[in-house]
């Protein structure tokens, strides 16, 4: 599904990712944890194709395709999805027509027929129940005037509608209260399948109480310094990151 080898990325000549390796197989959920500034969001952005990052070495392949050479929209059409840490407000662009356009672009790419307004509405209404989102938010411009929790639910709604094979959740839990967190996680869990994979990037362990990962990786200073199961997340919750970082440094 996703294969990242020795990925080295810099921003304005400052190295951020310093040789990152990650293998994600179909059906797996990987959590990437780490302290602030460890490179978590950079990883999410590079994988989704945001400008402003320079890949200095290494590779990233998705379903065998060279991800780093693909335009962001092609990555999306091939089934990748990034849930933004800070979803963007887009005044004047209606939430429903935006999502319909996005879905139909993806369907066209897959050689499927485009959905008409009626079929699309019935799909979106079904998926909205998943994230317990108010219907009026569909009529509003994308994310405009949404609360923090509504924005994150809107991300999960988009994910549910676009039905990606690989979803990257960039700190989706940040700024969420416990109820919103439960709803967002519930949405993710309902979308889990043997074919879909998730990369869940988070600073805190608490999201992983609701989304149970198969693997937990600790990112520090641009490298994965430790991988384990969900127990590793619990240990991090208890002991923090410092002991791991020290351990990693003493190995060098």
């Amino acid at each position: 599904m996703l294969s990242i080898k020795n990925l080295q990325v810099s921003v304005e000549e400052k190295p951020i990712l310093k040789g990152l390796n990650l293998e994600v197989k179909p059906g797996e959920i990987h959590a990437i944890m780490g302290p602030n500034g460890s490179g978590k969001s950079t990883l999410a952005h590079v994988l989704s194709g945001r400008e402003g990052y320079s890949v200095d070495a290494g590779s990233a392949h998705y379903k065998g395709l060279n991800l780093l050479e693909m335009a962001p929209e092609i990555r999306a059409r091939e089934g990748m999805f990034l849930a933004f840490q800070y979803p963007i407000e887009i005044p004047g662009v209606n939430n429903t027509s935006f999502l319909k356009k996005a879905l139909n672009e993806i369907r066209k790419h897959r050689g499927e027929e485009e959905l008409d307004a009626i079929d699309f509405l019935s799909l979106i209404k079904k998926q909205m129940k998943l994230v317990e989102m108010k219907e009026e938010l569909l009529k509003r411009p994308v994310n405009q005037g949404f609360s923090g929790g509504e924005k994150k639910r809107n991300e999960i709604l988009q994910m549910a509608v676009l039905n990606p094979t690989l979803a990257i959740l960039d700190e989706t839990d940040s700024g969420l209260d416990i109820d919103a967190l439960r709803i967002v996680a519930g949405g993710v869990n309902k979308l889990r399948s043997a074919d879909n994979s998730f990369v869940v990037i988070t600073h805190y362990q608490r999201l992983l109480d609701y989304i149970i990962p198969d693997f937990v990786h600790v990112l520090s200073d641009g490298q994965i310094i430790k991988s384990g199961t969900k127990d590793l997340a619990l240990e991090l919750e208890e002991r923090g990151y410092d002991w791991l970082i020290e351990e990693a440094e003493s190995k060098d």
Binding site: R50, F98, A102, L162
Partner: peptide, 8 residues
């Protein structure tokens, strides 16, 4: 970028 990341 947000729109592109959704396939547009």
């Amino acid at each position: 970028f947000y729109l592109q990341s959704r396939g547009i």
